[in-house]
Design a binder for these strands. Sequence first.
DNA 1: AACATCAGCAACCGCGTGCAA
DNA 2: TTTGCACGCGGTTGCTGATGT
Length: 221
Amino acid sequence: MMVPTRSKSINGNGDGGSNNAKKVMNRGAWTAEEDMKLSQYIETHGAKRWKTIATKSGLNRCGKSCRLRWLNYLRPNIKRGNISDEEEDLIVRLHRLLGNRWSLIAGRLPGRTDNEIKNYWNSHLSKKLVSQREKDMQIHLALSQEMATPPGKTKTPENSPVVVVEVEEEEGGEGKLGEGCLDPNFDVEKFFNFSTEPSCGLEWANMFMELEGDLMMDDRQ
DNA sequence: AACATCAGCAACCGCGTGCAA
DNA sequence: TTTGCACGCGGTTGCTGATGT
């Protein structure tokens, strides 16, 4: 897909209102030249003080824009596109646990950015989950009706296995922070141990899935 | 072929937080 | 304690290509 070309140029830069200069900033899509300038500057001076980076690098951009571009596209080890089934599954599970805390979710998926995960959720997963929920609801209703039929008129064999359909209470799926979490008191910091280096693999995922399983069990009780 | 609508995604915006002076 | 700056986060916007009519 082509990169959108935003040609608007306005004074505001959204940088916390800290920039009083009336200089017109570049906005919209980044050019290859701008990317190169930014990368080169950060390579030599480091990714600190974005406002300074923005001015010293010769880019006519606000610091915020530079930061976003670096974090989402230019920094090393960025993975783009092709979110695997495994990653998708993790995103869904983590979202159920954490809600819309995209940066936390992204922090557990090496090479992925919060923006990418947020976009992926909004454009793919939210719809997917809604249709899944509708399906579940239909099954649930059908089973409820069946259960309500008087004894003797039941269509299913007496000893047929009872299918427990779980209709998820995923109110937070539409997006409010913290909603949709299994446990609001879940200690994210403690579990993921953010004091250490961000995980570069998915070894934490097994531990997480075990925990998630426990929480689901508690939830049902 | 022309137009309308949808889907995907890069980028912007506003706000909250942390920290130093 | 207050103030201002820098940063980070989540929500939203708006552009483009794809698809439908």
